[in-house]
């Protein structure tokens, strides 16, 4: 099962859209850096039954932490949680274009 890392905003990059095209059942998505703006994007709704995580520090740095708390199904994680996700998934694919 793949862990997808999306680090660009879906409002300025196709990273999230490209990721979703290859997203398979059992995969997980972690939003980091500007990728946390996906919390405000409709595309995320297609993943309602999948594991979606958000890096808390990057969400907080962009004023999105409160939003992440109310978007259903999003789990906030810290750096240690990120490491743990990486141990539980293989491969880890980064989407940044």
């Amino acid at each position: 099962m793949t862990l997808h890392l999306v680090s660009k905003s879906p409002f300025s990059s196709s990273a999230l859209r490209d990721c979703l095209q290859s997203f398979a059942e059992g995969d997980a998505l972690l939003l980091i850096e500007d990728g946390v703006y996906a919390l405000r994007h409709d595309a995320l709704q297609t993943l309602q039954n999948s594991a979606v995580y958000c890096l808390e520090a990057d969400a907080a740095a962009r004023g999105q932490r409160e939003l992440a708390a109310i978007v259903s199904g999003i789990k906030m994680i810290d750096d240690a949680g990120w490491v743990k996700l990486c141990t539980q998934h293989n491969p880890i694919v980064s989407w940044f274009r």
Binding site: E33, D58, V83, K84, F96
Partner: peptide, 20 residues
Amino acid sequence: STQSAASALRFAKALLSEGH
């Protein structure tokens, strides 16, 4: 240029502090 090198450093520190 972007945040990603800083993210790499942060992730590396987290890996090492988690014992990997």
